[in-house]
Amino acid sequence: MVEPGVVHVFLSRGRFSSGEDIRDYVDERWSGNGDAEPSAFMAHAGIAELEPMCVEVVHARDDGHLTPVVPEVLLRDASYADQWLPHVESTEPADAAICVFTPNVVANPHGTPLHYLGGFTYRT
């Protein structure tokens, strides 16, 4: 039997002007000697070791303009959304989202300046 995974979902409105801005906030950096350094998001959310292939970022743009939309629209193309998105109760418009999937462990989800929607289960 496959153990369910958990996706932690974070929303933002007006914080990131581009997909590059949100990646700069999420992605690890590398020091001059090749050591991984945690990103601001990793530090805020309490993620000790990031598996980058299990983090998705969404940035809502329509004709080059930021367009806040409800989570149901913003997140509809995220991985496994058909399983967990129906459980999202928020209707708060957002223009960016970060979805952190298992095996990543989020120890401090409320430590970020983003709106934390919660952790939702899914099966692969």
Rank of each mutant, 00 (worst) to 15 (best):
P4N: 06
T121F: 13
S39G: 09
V26L: 01
R15P: 01
V88Y: 02
P68T: 06
G32E: 08
L74G: 00
F101C: 08
V6H: 09
P52T: 07
F16N: 03
R61G: 15
V58Q: 08
E92Y: 10
T67Q: 14
E49V: 13
H8K: 05
A60L: 09
A107S: 14
G19Y: 05
P38D: 00
H59P: 12
F10E: 01
R123C: 15
V69R: 08
E92G: 09
H59V: 13
P38L: 02
L75T: 05
V70Q: 12
V69D: 07
E3I: 11
S90H: 09
H44G: 11
G32I: 03
S18A: 04
F16Q: 00
A48N: 12
P93W: 06
W84K: 03
P103R: 05
S31R: 06
D27M: 04
S39P: 07
E51V: 15
G19S: 13
P4L: 01
G34S: 04
F10T: 01
H110E: 15
V9P: 07
N33K: 13
V70S: 14
P4I: 06
S39A: 04
E72N: 13
P113T: 01
E51G: 11
L11A: 07
A96D: 08
V55G: 04
P113G: 03
E37S: 09
T124R: 12
H115P: 03
M42E: 07
R13S: 13
A107P: 14
I22T: 00
G34Q: 05
Y116S: 12
H8I: 04
D63I: 13
P103T: 09
C99F: 00
E72Y: 06
D77W: 15
A43F: 15
L114F: 15
R61W: 11
L50Q: 09
R13W: 02
S79Y: 03
D95S: 08
V57Q: 04
P103E: 08
D63F: 14
L11K: 02
E49K: 14
D95G: 06
G64S: 08
V7N: 02
V73K: 09
R13T: 05
C99N: 03
P71E: 06
V105D: 14
H8V: 02
W30L: 10
Q83C: 02
G19C: 03
M1A: 15
F120A: 00
D24P: 09
C99D: 05
D27L: 06
A36M: 15
E89Y: 13
A60H: 11
A97L: 10
L11F: 04
G118Y: 11
L114V: 01
V100E: 00
W30S: 09
R23P: 06
V9T: 08
G46P: 15
G32R: 12
V106I: 13
H87M: 09
S18P: 07
E37Q: 14
C54A: 15
